[in-house]
């Protein structure tokens, strides 16, 4: 971990008074210029991790550290969060329709956010909106800025939302399932755009359930299971030689698009633990094929080559 880390989460733990432990040891590092895929199945805590970085997680006891460019976010006051969200880190969601106000024009909404954070005149802000929309690949940006959200297609709305998120030049863009609601051909367009943004504008945390999306857009990946980061590292390394039995099983369960068709897909039996009934040892142990006695203790998340993995097999 060099000193270049933009965002570094260490042992982040979120305990909800009723639901139980939602995050239980999330450690990850995002360096400038990286696109980090945060991948996991429903309920693994991947969206919560993104929300925590913006201080938007549900009320509960949050422990651990969240270092962003040298500052610990866990000690932020409400006022500090206001200057942080949208300005230094911004988030986009799966459904851009609900992120925009339906009764105001797209351009006006982006303009509002710019003027909230930056000392620009209305005219300067408008020029910035148009140039942003253009950079996001929106055709005829002046005209599109005058449209209402429902007048745009899903793909264009997602581009407009990315433009809004990037409007104040944040250093970090958190994208939560940005392509899940889109058709594959449009998804491919947005993934190309996100890669350009990662190379040009901001570091990206891409939250997704789709290993294929991670493979094509991310430089690094952190795999979450039941609120725990169980493996992380550069994308090629993780895809080529996954170390954790869960990562291995997850990759095997994806139906292939070429080569021989398997008679049966390998599956992971059972289901992830509920937040209020978590195993005290390794969280994956109840479903793991290589489980052994040592798994009763929570494995340490440690480096192995260029991976980091939490499994006794690599202790």
């Amino acid at each position: 971990m060099g000193s270049k880390a933009l965002l570094s989460l260490r042992d982040l733990r979120l305990e909800h008074p009723r639901a139980g432990v939602l995050l239980d040891g999330v450690s990850l590092t995002l360096e400038r210029g990286q696109i980090l895929g945060v991948v996991g199945e429903s309920g693994s805590g991947k969206s919560l991790t993104g929300l925590s970085v913006l201080g938007l997680h549900p009320a509960g006891r949050l422990t651990g550290t969240m270092m962003f460019d040298g500052q610990d976010l866990t000690h932020f006051t409400a006022r500090e969060w206001q200057g942080f969200r949208g300005r230094r880190a911004a988030m986009i969601f799966q459904d851009p329709m609900s992120a925009f106000l339906p009764v105001r024009r797209i351009g006006a909404q982006i303009e509002e956010q710019i003027r909230l954070h930056l000392p620009l005149s209305r005219r300067e802000a408008r020029a910035r909106v148009v140039s942003l929309l253009g950079r996001m690949g929106v055709p005829s940006p002046e005209r599109t800025a005058e449209r209402y959200p429902h007048e745009l297609s899903g793909g264009l709305r997602q581009r407009a939302m990315i433009a809004m998120a990037l409007s104040c030049d944040p250093e970090l863009l958190i994208a939560d399932e940005p392509t899940t609601a889109l058709d594959v051909t449009v998804q491919a367009q947005i993934l190309v755009l996100l890669r350009e943004i990662g190379a040009r504008d901001a570091s990206v945390m891409l939250i997704t359930h789709d290993m294929g999306v991670v493979a094509q857009s991310c430089t690094h990946v952190a795999v979450l299971y039941a609120g725990v980061v169980i493996e992380s590292g550069p994308v090629e390394a993780i895809l080529k030689t996954p170390l954790h039995p869960y990562t291995q099983a997850l990759l095997r369960a994806i139906p292939p698009l070429s080569g021989p068709r398997p008679d049966r897909l390998p599956v992971i039996e059972g289901a992830p633990p509920a937040p209020n009934a978590r195993p005290s040892g390794c969280v994956f142990a109840p479903r793991c094929a290589s489980v052994e006695a040592r798994c009763q203790m929570r494995p340490v998340f440690r480096s192995r080559g260029n991976h980091q993995v939490a499994c006794v097999l690599y202790a």
Binding site: V184, G212, A215, L239
Partner: peptide
Amino acid sequence: VDAVPQPGKPL
């Protein structure tokens, strides 16, 4: 077919 993101295949 080309738009399906897959491990090990450039977009």
